[in-house]
Design a binder for these strands. Structure first.
Length: 800
RNA sequence: GGGCCCGUAGUCGAAUGGUCAAGACGUCUGCCUUACACGCAGAAGACCGCCGGUUCGAUUCCGGCCGGGCCCACCA
């Protein structure tokens, strides 16, 4: 017997039961078609946020639906462990003094705790990955595969080490990739400085700059070749203020004559344009700062951090009378996405992945995939179109996958790790050969990998690439790659690139992109704004099934949506409605044996046929909607159907036959029971992927003993469209519903109770025959003593 | 500057080339009707952003404008 709905008891109960019964286990030996998913490994921050909940709920809906559809579903789950935020946390707890290996061990320990917490949260929401295929990017096994992929790409000339200007975060003291940059608007001072020169009679030219702290690295000044004001200056030299070095006046079409004075000073490197000019005009590179952003080669200012250097230089310029004026300037600066600090460009020796030249093959592979929704493909194409530099893959961090390389101290030759000794940790492991061919000592590479180097081979990791050929061909390419819109330019882009390079095959067939969850006020959820909603709290208050329904309701295809309390409240009441209706059905089904019912011999009434016909329609629609990942359409249509059509109308219209078989006949009761049984069963199946716990519990109480399958999780999707739409029944039912509405309106106006009896209901309708089909329902559900029918325009007259 | 998304009752939000444009929240009025008052019934509330075009007919298709959001590029 169904008791009260107690999510805190039934949800963990079924989570355990499914796991024990292997309901989510992938069987590589199965003959069923494979549906494999490459789900995002969340960064192990310690807590799942609502964005995770939304997107992972989506993946779970897909997995559970495909299982019901008879697929062998491969649904692994991993963890993106390594990265700067963890280092910061560990540093703040244990200090900066630990030796690298000990520090790394602390990070691992810390991360394991976080994984346990996050995994617990995932289980509590009812996600159904096959945990036997769990992976962690910090594990030696994962390191081995990442290193193997790098060795192969190095062999193919796709990974190289070189000295180039790279985006640099002085706060993190590490190189970062363009994809890790963000932009921040701020107000800066635009300083107009005097550059002394003999070329003009005033003795100086004015140059506007926001970066006076880089004067020591100024190597040229530029004017636009078409700028007549300065035509006479080209080829002359000017003296850089404060430091006094002489630099040439050159021309370049990239100079905007309208900005500032139309003259630009070029330093190594103030911004990306300076890098372009350095190469274009073959200019010298001055190391302007060290890895922490402290000035280098700046005379008395050497060692001063850039922020402080800026104000000190401005002071000095004022003292020397070289500062003409200052203006406020709105500018956008690039910042590091992890620490939000401004980024610099510095030249440094780093490892790179060759991206230039592969844009077309990446775009081609992407175009062959199905992107849901379609426009998200454009995000990737746009990004690919703007690839200017190769991808910097090395990071000066400890907690990361070590690059499997050594360098010769003498000649700089790169020495690769041996494949069979992977994973290697070059800081403590012996190099593969004792000495370089030139006789020099070998030194292990200190840098570790960008975290996207790790995660960009997730489809290879889960499919046991280079390890189990059969398993690999079964699960690679993944059928579905679900992910967030904000990581298209990183995770999707790098994965397509790397997997293509390593296997020659694109990594997945379909990409499902979901949007972000905003705070109820429409702003981004962030700790600093204090508007973060923790999933745990919602599960406790509304149940996991309600949270999952909310996700289905919110994930409007790659569009960001604010969190809505009213939605989740509604979802919770829907479960209660489902529960209570199931209680009624359970009671009404006493003595009903589905196996002994001959559907053909049933005396179905029009309302029964209407319900069964609607059910068929819904199965058809929902099948298409699940195939298109349109969970919004599914949950809204199911909520509307079940609540309003089934509960509010059908149940009221069928009660008399269930309660009084002696008056309306056993056959009529059987027909009603059959209908209740079929509708509730198919409803549970179609809702199962979204609210698995409640539907499994109801199934267990009402259906398990009558069906072949004990677990709803292991049952089969309802058969599609057993019969065509029953036009007559649908029309009759709609007519009945409007007649009942009229009767209810009459009672409401007369302030009568709904179950109050009325003497007579006179119905005029164009099709009198239809009214006859539902006359019994009008009398019983409307509590009408008599029903009179005549032709004509639709009209209902009630006589109290 | 380039690309993308969006603009529907007080709020959130579907669908649709053509009968009274879903549903939810909120509001108002009744009703504790043997599953549910976390419920049921009823009511009020929308010139479907603005202007043109296509069409017999447009909220729906096309163009422009206005407004909101996102991504990318540039910014000395």
């Amino acid at each position: 017997m169904l008791g009260d709905w107690k999510p805190k008891e039934i949800e963990p109960k079924w989570q355990k039961k499914w796991e024990e019964d292997g309901a989510h286990a992938f069987d590589p030996a199965s003959k069923k078609p494979v549906f494999s998913m490459d789900t995002p490994p969340p960064f192990t921050s310690g807590d799942l946020h609502m964005g995770h909940v939304l997107s992972y709920a989506y993946f779970d809906f897909a997995a559970r639906y495909k299982r019901l559809r008879g697929f062998s579903v491969f649904y692994p789950q991993g963890w993106d462990c390594q990265g700067f935020p963890t280092e910061v946390k560990v540093e703040s707890k244990f200090g900066k003094k630990l030796p690298p290996e000990e520090f790394r061990a602390k990070c691992v320990e810390w991360t394991e705790e976080f994984i346990a917490r996050m995994k617990g949260q995932m289980v509590a929401i009812g996600f159904s990955p096959d945990w036997r295929h769990e992976y962690k990017t910090m594990s030696p096994a994962y390191h081995r595969k990442v290193q193997l992929s790098l060795l192969k790409m190095h062999e193919d000339g796709l990974v190289y080490c070189g000295e180039h200007p790279v985006f640099w975060c002085p706060y993190c003291a590490s190189a970062i990739a363009k994809a890790e940059t963000e932009e921040e608007e701020r107000t800066a001072d635009l300083n107009y400085l005097k550059f002394e020169t003999d070329a003009v009679k005033e003795g100086f030219i004015a140059i506007a700059t926001t970066r006076p702290e880089l004067l020591h690295a100024c190597v040229a000044v530029f004017v636009n070749p078409g700028d007549e004001r300065y035509a006479g200056l080209v080829g002359k030299t000017v003296k850089v203020p404060v430091y006094g070095q002489k630099v040439s006046i050159l021309t370049d079409a990239d100079v905007d004559p309208a900005f500032g004075t139309g003259i630009v000073m070029m330093c190594t490197f103030g911004d990306k344009q300076d890098v372009v000019w350095t190469y274009r005009h073959n200019l010298p590179v001055i190391q302007s700062m060290d890895v922490y952003g402290r000035l280098l080669n700046a005379g008395e200012f050497s060692g001063v951090k850039i922020g402080e250097a800026k104000s000190r230089l401005v002071e000095r310029l004022k003292e020397c009378g070289l500062l003409i004026k200052q203006e406020k300037l709105q500018q956008v600066v690039k910042t590091h996405d992890r620490c939000k600090k401004p980024i610099e460009l510095i030249t440094s020796r780093q490892w790179f992945c060759k991206l230039k030249g592969f844009e077309e093959s990446i775009k081609k592979a992407a175009r062959e995939m199905r992107w849901v929704p379609e426009f998200t493909l454009q995000h990737l194409i746009d990004w690919a179109n703007y690839i200017e530099w190769d991808w910097v893959i090395s990071r000066d961090r400890v907690f990361g996958t070590p690059l499997p390389f050594w360098h010769c101290r003498k000649c700089g030759q790169v020495v690769r790790a041996k494949e069979e000794s992977l994973p290697v940790y070059p800081l403590k492991d012996k190099p593969p050969i004792a000495k370089c061919a030139c006789g020099g000592e070998l030194e292990g590479e200190k840098a570790t990998c960008d975290c996207w180097v790790d995660s960009s081979i997730s489809p290879l990791i889960v499919s046991k690439w280079t390890e189990d050929e059969r398993f690999h061909s079964l699960t690679y390419p993944a059928t579905l790659r679900p992910q967030g819109t904000e990581i298209i330019r990183t995770w999707a882009f790098y994965t397509i690139y790397r997997c293509l390079m390593l296997t020659g095959k694109p990594p997945f067939k379909e990409v499902l992109v979901n949007g972000m969850v905003l705070a109820p006020d429409g702003k981004k959820m962030s700790k600093s704004l204090g508007n973060v909603i923790p999933p745990d709290k919602l599960i406790g208050e509304y149940s996991a099934d309600a949270v999952r329904q909310w996700a289905a309701l919110s994930g409007a295809f790659a569009r960001d949506k604010p969190f809505s309390y009213k939605d989740i409240k509604y979802c919770k009441s829907f479960i209660l409605k489902l529960w209570n209706a199931s209680k009624l059905v359970e009671k009404s089904l006493e003595g009903f044996d589905s196996a002994r019912v001959d559907a053909k011999k049933l005396k179905l009434r029009a309302v029964d046929r209407w319900m069964l016909s609607r059910m068929d329609e819904l199965v058809k629609q929902n099948t298409a909607n699940y195939d298109n990942y349109d969970y919004f359409a599914i949950i809204t249509s199911m909520q509307d159907f079940f609540w309003h059509e089934f509960c509010d109308y059908y149940l009221e219209e069928a009660k008399h036959r269930l309660y009084q078989p002696e008056k309306f006949g056993e056959e009529s009761r059987l027909a009603a029971q059959y209908t209740l049984y079929a509708v509730l069963l198919d409803t549970l199946k179609m809702l199962f992927p979204i609210l698995p716990h409640a539907s499994e519990e109801i199934y267990g109480e009402v259906f398990a003993s009558r069906e072949k399958t004990r677990l709803l999780a292991k049952s089969a999707w309802p058969e599609v469209a057993k019969q065509g739409r029953d036009e007559e029944a649908v029309k009759a039912a709609l007519l009945l519903n409007s007649i009942l509405s009229e009767i209810r309106r009459f009672k409401a106006e007369k302030k009568m109770a709904l179950n109050a009896e009325v003497a007579c209901v006179k119905v005029s309708a164009p099709e009198e025959g239809l009214v006859a089909l539902v006359e019994e329902e009008v009398r019983e559900a409307g509590k009408a003593g008599k029903v009179e029918v005549c032709g004509g325009e639709f009209k209902v007259e009630v006589v109290a």
